[in-house]
């Protein structure tokens, strides 16, 4: 119960210490603004922040959804077909070693400025955890369960839909939660490489002007965005797998 109380208290303590330190040590505003200063900035530039938030959010949502669809389709194919598993899966895994940050400037050359390169970067970064976790999940079906449905006369496709897909859901959601967490970073990287709007752009634009409070305000909005997306993913998980959570609650109330 009240498990959120402790982290909130710790956070409040840290913010208070920060405020106190900045005030007492008289740290210049451009170097480290006090939390109160950042709050002031949040309200005075709220329109500006909101406009840039919408841009970044759009990059994240579109990129994430593209990664989700591509990741699930590919994972399904890899789990269903030996040929795809042997041919495509190693490439998917190897692709993770390609530094996507290094590709970002190239994307500008290939697809130009605008939202597209950012969406591609978000999609590339989210794709991997979703695809790999879902492949693992699709392959995690209990062999005894597979035999049980086979004995009932199930076809290969029925085993896939009635057994493998439900088994994969918890794995898929782990991938999705990792994906949404890194999607915010991905969008910011995309904007740093070259953009004229978005919160990442706002940060790179404000920093040389020593608008440090605004940089912090943008970072804060990005964090809130990331947390919100994560919570939404966790809510979707709960809605799609009610058995998973009631089972956990009854089996191991306080263990994990």
């Amino acid at each position: 119960m009240l498990s959120w109380l402790l982290p909130v208290a710790i956070l409040a303590g840290l913010v208070a210490a920060w405020e106190l330190w900045v005030q007492l040590a008289d740290v210049p505003k451009w170097q480290l603004p006090a939390p109160s200063e950042i709050a002031k900035e949040l309200s005075s530039s709220s329109d500006l922040l909101w406009d840039h938030t919408l841009v970044t959010l759009k990059e994240i949502v579109v990129g994430f959804l593209a990664a989700l669809i591509a990741g699930l389709v590919l994972a399904g194919g890899i789990a269903y077909s030996r040929v795809l598993e042997r041919s495509v899966y190693p490439i998917v895994i190897a692709s993770q070693t390609v530094p996507i940050i290094a590709i970002a400037p190239l994307l500008l050359i290939w697809v130009g400025y605008g939202l597209t390169p950012k969406i591609i970067i978000v999609a590339l970064i989210c794709f991997y955890p979703i695809a790999v976790n879902t492949v693992d999940g699709l392959k995690a079906a209990d062999p005894d369960m597979i035999n049980m449905v086979r004995a009932l006369g199930a076809s290969r496709w029925q085993v896939f839909t009635k057994l493998q897909i439900p088994t994969a859901l918890p794995f898929m959601f782990s991938g999705i939660k990792i994906g949404v967490s890194v999607s915010v970073i991905a969008a910011v990287i995309g904007e740093w490489v070259g953009a004229s709007e978005g919160l990442g752009y706002l940060i790179t634009y404000s920093q040389p002007l020593f608008l440090t409070a605004r940089v912090f305000a943008a970072i804060l909005v990005l964090s809130v965005m990331g947390i919100t997306l994560f919570v939404l993913a966790a809510l979707a998980e709960r809605m799609m797998m009610p058995w998973h959570f009631s089972e956990k609650r009854s089996n191991s109330m306080r263990q994990l």
Partner: peptide
Amino acid sequence: DGFGGGRLGQTGYMQQKDLLLPWR
């Protein structure tokens, strides 16, 4: 492919473990 056909689906087989699907 080992799914369907042969004697599969021709008997009622209750295995040693109950093997209920947790999501159903």
